[in-house]
Nucleic acid binder design. Structure first.
Lengths: 342, 342
DNA sequence: CTGAAAGCGCTTACAG
DNA sequence: CTGAAAGCGCTTACAG
């Protein structure tokens, strides 16, 4: 039962002016308004406790000042961090944000995109799953403002904000080598859907092995679904030559590894070195504290918004670009052999 | 530059029917529609790739099928968990959700409420800060559908979904006692703003001391801002008789305590027992694993949605109720004296 | 079974 | 400096 709201007509009547004049007031066009009129309207609005109806405004203006954000999986702390930056930045620019979590499900993602479009969002920032290439193609082709984050969709007329994934792995491997770990394995979630960062991280692992002149062992590469990740880790440590250190591809693979290590009484640092991509909230309170490769989440979120807003300003669609951001390493104890564990 | 969208008129023209008929089609009123007409419209919609404009629809229907969720502080894992449940449940009922994070700032909260109302949300679910009593009063009085979660606002015509906070503390204290810890301190964030769960948790601590016939020591109660929490914890352990165990009031105080313990080489379990309210994602991988008092977040989110939807159905506003949910304890190693640490 | 008309609450170009 | 009118894209009661 919606309350009968007071409308611009009520205000107009109350202030004894026309709707047009009230509208001018609402939109702060005071140039040609008599002081006295302004005050009368102001008073009427206060007395009636009037609140403009944004839905009507949006319909007329054909713009909702709202951006849709679709995230493949909000469980990643990376995603939540970037989204907070996006929201802040959009807020600063007087845009609202609607966040949708696709839960790694392309069908859900599709439904959300359609809902958001029906709701007339002015643009989209998306961490895409891998299932809606055609939809994205259609959007980009029709020049709908869209920016991708974390992953990109190939052959598309749209900007993307990405981590330099190869560098991330190189940082991790180099650091582990320096600290005396030589046999280094890597963990990522399944490559089945060709999710870009995972592919790039595996590719980065290969190039790191080459660069640092280490033997490339395929059995040190574990890319699998989270649900069976622990089995994969078990295989790793049943090898004749088990790895001395692990590079974890993201925060969720990290969880699996930490669980495995805890269950098998492995001492992280001493028994096995560990570096993980993505800074997690508990990195510094973990025992031992975790060495992480942090993404510049704040800058990445800001950039995504900037790119999107830029599209509103400039008519001409400049060439789509992929913006790469440099990771940084936060060294803690999990990648240190001596005295890591209390 | 919004793309010129195809509208219902375009479809009508293309299918050679009136707008009314297309609208009937869109709203699945097929009763009086000839099969042939239905097909023509369907075809036209496909060919034109028509997507109805929800903004126009909302304006006409005076309902957006959207619920606003305002959360005092989204950093609590409790909040994110409840919100996921809310969103799922709303989705099932064909409502969209807009989530806003007030960042514990009443001014921000107020701004969000106003934006959401201007955007004509059909109802509000809010984890309130403590600064907008009058605004909430106005909303509730005008019969706007609103449900509170985690905290309630007194003297208001609105339902609330709450944890049984007293029981939560009693569970924690009882468990610690059973495990041989007698001197038990409690940590919560500042009571300055009279945030209900904090007050209730402190009250629960007092009643637990009485119930279990323990001496009530005021210096074992530390309620303070997170920024100075560590000093408070330090004071605790400089007491002549430092506590043997800690009950942490939520996940953020937990962080502070874990940091302190790690910096001071305290062995959790052995040196000091620990139970925390709120299940955290890393509880089971922490070393030692953390004993937690879990809130039934899923049920709480579902209930909040049910209560809200109920208000849409029934005209009569029944008496506002506070729904209390029972916490449960998840026993792990942090509350065990022997052999907790690896 | 289908269409013309009115109206949701705004904004804006234009006239005066 | 202010107002009348048209229109944004829908829905619905009503007429036929």
């Amino acid at each position: 039962m919606p309350i009968k709201k007071t409308t611009i007509s009520d205000v107009a009547k109350h202030a004894q002016v026309s709707k047009s004049t009230v509208s001018q007031f609402l939109n702060e066009r005071f140039e040609y308004m008599r002081e006295e009129t302004r005050e009368r309207i102001e008073k009427a609005i206060k007395e009636l406790n009037y609140q403009p109806n944004n839905v009507a405004r949006s319909l007329k203006l054909k713009s909702t000042a709202t951006i849709g954000v679709i995230v493949a999986n909000i469980l990643h702390s990376f995603s939540t961090q970037v989204i907070r930056a996006i929201e802040d930045k959009l807020n600063e620019n007087d845009f609202s944000t609607i966040i949708c979590n696709a839960d790694d499900d392309p069908a859900k993602e599709k439904k959300y995109i359609e809902t958001l479009l029906a709701r007339q969002v002015d643009g989209l920032i998306v961490f895409p799953t891998s299932g809606n290439q055609e939809l994205y193609k259609r959007l980009a082709d029709s020049n709908f403002p869209i920016v991708f984050v974390d992953r990109y969709v190939s052959d598309l007329n749209a900007d993307a904000v990405m981590l330099d994934n190869e560098k991330a792995i190189h940082l991790a491997v180099e650091h582990l080598l320096t600290n005396g770990y030589e046999d280094i394995a890597v963990l990522t979630t399944s490559l089945e859907n060709a999710v870009v960062p995972r592919l790039e991280r595996i590719q980065g692992y290969r190039s790191a092995m080459e660069r640092f002149e280490l033997p490339l062992r395929e059995d040190y590469i574990k890319s699998m679904d989270l649900s069976v990740m622990k089995d994969g880790i078990a295989e790793l440590f049943q090898l004749e030559k088990p790895p001395q250190a692990i590079v974890s591809g993201n925060d969720l693979t990290l969880m699996e590894f930490l669980k495995y290590a805890s269950e098998h009484n492995m001492k992280i640092g001493t028994d096995v070195g560990l570096v993980t991509i993505d800074e997690v909230p508990y990195a510094s309170i973990h025992n031992p504290p975790l060495t992480t490769i942090a993404q510049p989440t704040f800058e990445m979120g800001e950039k995504a918004v900037e790119l999107l807003l830029h599209k509103f300003d400039s008519k001409k669609s400049n060439d789509p670009k992929i913006y790469r951001f440099a990771p940084s390493i936060i060294v803690r104890k999990s990648s240190e052999k001596a005295g890591a564990q209390l």
